[in-house]
Design a protein around this nucleic acid. Structure first.
Lengths: 73, 73
DNA sequence: TTTTTACATGAATTATATTTCTATAAAAGT
DNA sequence: ACTTTTATAGAAATATAATTCATGTAAAAA
């Protein structure tokens, strides 16, 4: 994993967590909405997973945000 | 793979191909810019792969488009 | 006709995404 | 103080992302 990969995952992870907390959703609730395991959502938010585009788009859908909210460079 | 997953991949795939052709880049050239195999880029454009967010963001970077260009629902 | 360029695909392999199970611990609620 | 909720994480197993190699096709160019 290259260094710029980590930068990407950091920003994606942080923005997901920020938007989730803004909506007062628990990891468990959001994971359930997106149909992924709680463990895996936790890994995403802690920058330990590189999720597929389908999962990211579903997360955005559940949070009612667009993709640019998660990465806007 | 659920049906709405396929809908997502279809739109993502089509938009990547459209933007690549608009810039007159070959699959080989774009794959090289993004540092993925030509075969895999071909699979993405033909809706046979579900790439990670890091790869999608790198593709957007190479095409100089934002994420919403690829998925805007 | 020959060569080159671009796109596509099957099979086999490797790397990694994702789940399941389990457990700990802090924080919040009662 | 007790209970419940929430977040975190290790390890092992499973699913699938991603590569490599080989090959084929078709169109454009020489």
């Amino acid at each position: 994993m290259a260094m710029d990969d980590k930068l990407i995952l950091e920003e994606v992870a942080d923005n997901i967590r920020i938007e989730r907390l803004r909506r007062r959703l628990s990891q468990e609730k959001l994971a359930e909405m997106v149909d992924i395991s709680t463990k895996y959502l936790n890994m995403i938010e802690n920058r330990k997973a590189n999720p597929t585009i389908v999962i990211v788009i579903k997360i955005c859908g559940a949070l009612d945000i667009d993709l640019n909210t998660i990465w806007s460079k």
